[in-house]
Design a protein around this nucleic acid. Structure first.
Length: 423
RNA sequence: AGAGGAGUGGCAGAGCGGUCGAAUGCGGCGGUCUUGAAAACCGUUGAACCGCAAGGUUCCGGGGGUUCGAAUCCCUCCUCCUCUGCCA
């Protein structure tokens, strides 16, 4: 959520920024300012009347104490009419405040200067590419065939016990999952991240904190009985750890990493080329989350990207790094880099990581702040990235590393799997 | 899940209708003393909103109510503790 003060002071910058998302936000912005003006007006009116009535209440107390009950009674009567007026102005203020909040929820984050304008994935910029695209034999199989051939991941069983998009990992398939999770967590730890194991259901307030609500409730599984959401990513619980927190400068930057299963309803997004592991309702992911001072967040973004790139290089997967254009970027993000690996049998790039800087957009909702040396309270910057999401990594490893005698496990992973081939 | 108790400032803890944004202690910050440090002493020390400022308003777990006036009374929700039950 953008700050109204920022919208006021940098109206033009906000507008030109939002244009890169293909959004003409003029009326949105002006409405926000208008609602804020109304809010201020109502508060001022209420405050003045309250100030008056507080003083009079105090006076009544004094009169009672000194035994002038009749004077107190007449003053009491005089106050009555102010009460209604106060109530009215307070109700107004609450109403405007609520409208303002709901209104601000509709305005996406302002893209960073680097972010190119654009409508869709077509307009993303390939900023880096690494590794060589493997050439496979003519009879090479896509991963959804390979998992059957080696009996390591079973969609039919998942269908039976849960439904579509909930695969069952078996034998070396299950071990590969566990190995990847451990590998990713260990790599994160070596980069100074603290491991977190958060709950995988969260309350409504957390959904608002990181910006999944109010927009995207349809994307999350919801436990109606208890009013809880299954997390779509560890970003939600891990970032919300810092909701309503005043950090001290010494504690920054915060570097947390966590493995969780992630749940996505993906309502309506199933199409022809989301077979196999390409898109699931439940998948595993290690997420890295950082909280930094504003002036540090862009260096941190680079650091996080390099970490993710390092993982892909250790896994020997060819990848490219995309700078997302305004139109393809998430609602909350100021800048996002996507990492895509090449899955050789499908002949497709698959997104395996998304690294974003939210600047103060989440921190504003979260009320996540810190005190500067000169005593000023300031919003922090939040960042996160997948490091990494498992299923598409598995898809690429299976497809790219298939041989006549089985699937070769990347060297870096062998200490974690305990085997070097799936056959 | 049932019965009982409790939620106050960074922490501990008093207050239980008016002068309470809140005693006191600890911690933090500044100072005196000291070659330096400790101790002692003095001062200071929450946040949000409105306002150029002076200042005003709000916040004692969340929400609602009673009252001229609520940290204090009532309702409700949440959380924690104790006992009983259940359970990986």
């Amino acid at each position: 959520m953008l700050q109204v003060s920022v919208i006021r002071e940098h109206r033009e910058t906000v507008l030109t920024g939002l244009k890169k998302r293909g959004l003409n936000a003029e009326s949105l912005i002006d409405e926000a300012i208008r609602l804020d003006d109304e809010r201020k007006k109502s508060q001022q009116l209420a405050d003045d009347l309250k100030s008056k009535s507080n003083a009079e209440s105090k006076r009544i107390g004094e009169l009672m104490k000194s035994g002038k009950a009749d004077e107190a009674a007449s003053l009491r009567a005089a106050i009555a009419s102010d009460k209604d007026a106060i109530k009215k102005h307070e109700d107004d203020r609450a109403l405007y405040e609520d409208q303002l909040l709901k209104h601000l929820y509709k305005i996406p984050n302002v893209p960073h200067a680097k972010v190119p304008a654009g409508k869709s994935a077509e307009d993303n910029i390939n900023v880096h590419q690494h590794g060589t695209i493997p050439t496979l034999d003519a009879d090479a199989l896509p991963h959804w065939e390979l998992i059957k051939k080696y009996d390591i991941i079973d969609f039919d069983l998942g269908n039976k016990i849960s439904g579509a998009g909930f695969p069952v990992y078996k034998g070396k398939g299950a071990k590969l999952q566990r190995a990847l999770i451990n590998f990713f967590l260990q790599e994160a730890e070596q980069k100074g991240y603290r491991e977190i194991q958060p709950p995988i259901v969260v309350n409504e307030a957390s959904g608002y904190g990181t910006g999944q609500l109010p927009d995207k409730e349809g994307q999350m599984y919801f436990v109606t009985e208890d009013g809880l959401y299954l997390i779509p990513t560890a970003e939600v619980p891990i970032t919300n750890l810092y909701r309503d927190v005043m950090m001290s400068e010494n504690d920054l930057p915060v570097k947390n990493a966590g493995y969780t299963p992630c749940f996505r309803r993906e309502a309506g997004s199933w199409g022809a080329h989301v077979r196999g592991l390409n898109r699931l309702h439940q998948f595993d992911k290690v997420e890295i989350v950082q909280i930094t001072k504003p002036e540090d967040s862009y260096a941190t973004l680079d650091e996080m990207c390099l970490h993710v790139q390092g993982l892909l290089e250790k896994l020997e997967l060819p990848y490219r790094k995309l700078l997302l254009c305004g139109g393809d970027m998430g609602f909350n993000s100021a800048i996002t880099y996507d990492m895509e690996v090449f899955s050789a049998a499908q002949q497709r790039w698959l997104e395996v990581s998304s690294v974003s800087n939210f600047e103060t957009f989440q921190a504003n909702r979260l009320k996540l702040r810190y005190k500067t040396k000169d005593g000023k309270t300031q919003l922090l910057h939040t960042l996160n990235g997948s490091a990494l999401a498992l299923p598409r990594i598995v898809a690429a490893i299976l497809e790219n590393n298939q041989t006549k005698t089985g699937i070769k496990i990347p060297k870096a992973l062998v200490p974690f799997t305990g085997f070097d081939v799936i056959n």
